[in-house]
Amino acid sequence: MKDTLQAGLEQTLKYRVPRERTVPFLYPESDHFRIMPEVFATGYLVGFIEWACMEALAPHLEEGERTVGTMINVTHEAATPVGMEVTATVRCVEVDGKRTVWAVEARDEVDVIGRGTHERFVINYDKFTQRVATKGKK
């Protein structure tokens, strides 16, 4: 990781919610999910927040580095219907070696829909995928 990464770094990401990112599509093999309303799913909200953090981190990574999420503590406070735009704002609050901590907030066009914290670690992509491949063979 480059030494350009500092606490205080902020990133905003916008996304218009398609039908395929609603609750019934999260695990379509589950009857419990399929019968739910078509609103932005918590699982996709988490991914959206991670995406915003990855965008913020990308310019500060060395060749061959990626980041992985290791902790998420986020509320989901309001439902967002299909077609509405959501915005994630993430701010780096701590850099500790390869570990970063982010204050996160997501809003739709009307409400704050989620907020909390997210932790990410910088990894070497090749070493990480080798470990996962080895694990998969066991």
Rank of each mutant, 00 (worst) to 15 (best):
H60T: 08
E63Q: 12
E63T: 10
E63Y: 00
E63P: 07
E63M: 09
E63S: 11
T67L: 08
V68C: 07
V68Y: 01
G69A: 08
T70V: 13
T70Q: 06
T70L: 08
M71Q: 15
N73W: 08
N73L: 13
V74H: 12
T75N: 04
H76N: 07
E77P: 05
E77W: 01
A78L: 00
A78W: 00
P81Q: 04
P81C: 03
P81N: 08
V82F: 04
G83Q: 02
G83Y: 03
M84D: 13
M84V: 15
E85Y: 09
T87G: 05
T87E: 10
T87C: 07
A88D: 02
V90G: 03
C92I: 03
C92T: 08
E94F: 10
E94S: 15
E94W: 09
V95R: 13
V95P: 11
V95D: 03
D96T: 10
G97P: 06
K98I: 13
R99P: 11
R99N: 15
T100I: 10
T100W: 06
V101L: 15
V101N: 12
W102E: 01
W102A: 08
W102P: 06
A103D: 14
V104F: 07
V104N: 03
E105Y: 10
A106T: 09
R107H: 11
R107D: 05
D108R: 00
V110C: 06
D111C: 06
I113G: 02
G114E: 12
